[in-house]
Write a protein that binds this DNA or RNA. Structure first.
Lengths: 195, 195
DNA sequence: GTGTCAACTTTACACGGTGTCAAGCAAAGT
DNA sequence: ACTTTGCTTGACACCGTGTAAAGTTGACAC
């Protein structure tokens, strides 16, 4: 063979990730091909379309950055509040690394069903983490009486959205640590019964 | 004249608004033309491009729905908290009516500079309202010591984003009143010093 | 009633980006 | 020698936006 196919495939994923996170403009298939050092058509030999390339890239990032381990850490927390903090740190700290990816995937949602499904899947996983934190708080008896567990989960999930991170960190110029600190405070203020 | 040009122009705006709010799919220029009962090309006789049509439509909605009056009402509030409530009601209640518009405009941000500017302008206006509410709270001496006025404005602004409304009302199935109630509670919990 | 203007029509095409198709080529494996 | 694998080049269809040009129709002026 002229080159190792496995290397090419993962090189495409690396390059796609890199372009999405560091590229200023919109990333076209031809940009990715050029950066990977192959022809645009060769891209379609590895991935059937743009959506699947993006989805594969998210999975690739997850493996490299080990999201599972990141989010798993919050499970070892004893109290609900600790768990909340650990989850906000875990997910909130992951956002900057998938932000470019997230923008591209979200932009495809309107036209591509598969991209929408991929994004929803990832968000469902985050919601699941929120749910676990809320349940831990509830079991501590610290959940505010104003919210059901489901409503509290929805609210926390919304608070932790990539869009909110974008606005505070990228648009408003907050530092990552200011973001995490304030989101923790806000989440606590909104979810915990003041006692 | 074969028909009144002013009627045609405002008919286009009405129809665009209607399609954006009620149409399921992505709205193309040809969809708008068809709905307005004119040829696609005639659209370009009234608006130079898609971005300007969308921008004109937002202005049109503003006039019809009288946003200014809506948001102005919060100025008459006496206390900071009252002002916060009035603003959340005013803006939060406006979101559902411009939601479709917002989606379309935001989708163009990446490619069209003018669309991005138009959206940023509108968001700047909302931020200004947030700032006024925060200042009123601050003057009451009720602003939490954890946040500067600017950070509090950023946070409130983020809380009141169209994206958060989308998630809670559209994705999570909250009613408009549940949304408004919970956002008020959350904003109060996050911004006010607990005394 | 002839002429002009304005609103709009039809037809055609350029452009950018995605995705498809087909033929060819070069190196590695057997 | 021959096949397979991983690519290349080149061409093309599709879609949506935007442009260009020539033609139609009705209202109004004189």
């Amino acid at each position: 063979m002229s080159s190792n196919p496995i290397n090419t495939k993962s090189r495409i994923l690396d390059v796609t990730w890199n372009l999405l996170e560091n590229g200023d403009k919109t990333v076209r298939m031809s940009d990715i091909a050029k950066a990977a050092g192959i022809s645009r058509q060769a891209l379609y030999l590895h991935f059937p379309n743009r959506a699947e390339l993006l989805v594969a890239t998210t999975r690739h990032i997850d493996v490299v950055k080990n999201v599972d381990a990141r989010l798993e850490r919050s499970r070892s927390a004893t109290s609900g509040v600790e768990r909340l903090h650990a989850f906000i740190e875990g997910w909130g700290g992951y956002i900057p690394q998938i932000h470019g990816m997230s923008v591209a995937l979200r932009a495809m949602r309107s036209t591509d069903k598969e991209a929408a499904a991929a994004w929803n899947d990832r968000m469902k996983a985050v919601r699941h983490g929120c749910e676990a934190a809320v349940q831990a708080i509830s079991q501590d008896g610290s959940l505010t009486r104003d919210l059901t567990e489901e409503a509290a989960t929805d609210l926390l999930w919304t608070l932790l959205s990539v869009e909110n991170w974008e606005r505070l960190v990228r648009d408003c110029g907050w530092t990552q640590s200011a973001y995490e600190k304030t989101i923790k405070q806000t989440a606590e203020a909104a979810l915990l019964s003041q006692s």
